[in-house]
Amino acid sequence: MTFGKWGKVAVAALGVAALSSAVFAQDKEALVKNRIDFMKGQAADNKAIGDYAKGMATKEAATKAINDLIDRSGKIVAMFPAGTSSTDMPGKSNAKAAIWTDHAKFVEIAKTLHDTAVAEADVIKTGTPEAVGAAQANLGKVGCGACHGPYREKLPG
């Protein structure tokens, strides 16, 4: 197994996990609130790119958004220290406990988001808005939806 940047991210997250019992409840609440805002920021980036594909926003706005997504993708894993699952913090966190039992796959999806976003930046640079629309639908699926399926709770109401 290679120990590249993503391996280090995973190890960093586990390090945070080891310390988590020392994290006060209050801090955990702030952390979860922060990560939810962070996730919403990613959604806003997607929306900006989608708007560009539909001719409703500038290429400049789409470029800014994809760069922000690339930047954010490297920060996701560290935002999920152990002790912040929906079981630990019902009603506050929607992070499924599977994140910590099936951690390698969680890290892998964050990396897929990163790689897909890097490729999409090229499409924005050189491709048509239609091509951007297709790249964006793919990113949403393999980079966002793929993680939300197994790792995020969705309340049926």
Partner: peptide
């Protein structure tokens, strides 16, 4: 496309 109006994407 799987996108919600907020730019979130459905999974599973």
């Amino acid at each position: 496309t799987g996108a919600t109006p907020e730019g979130d994407y459905v999974g599973g």
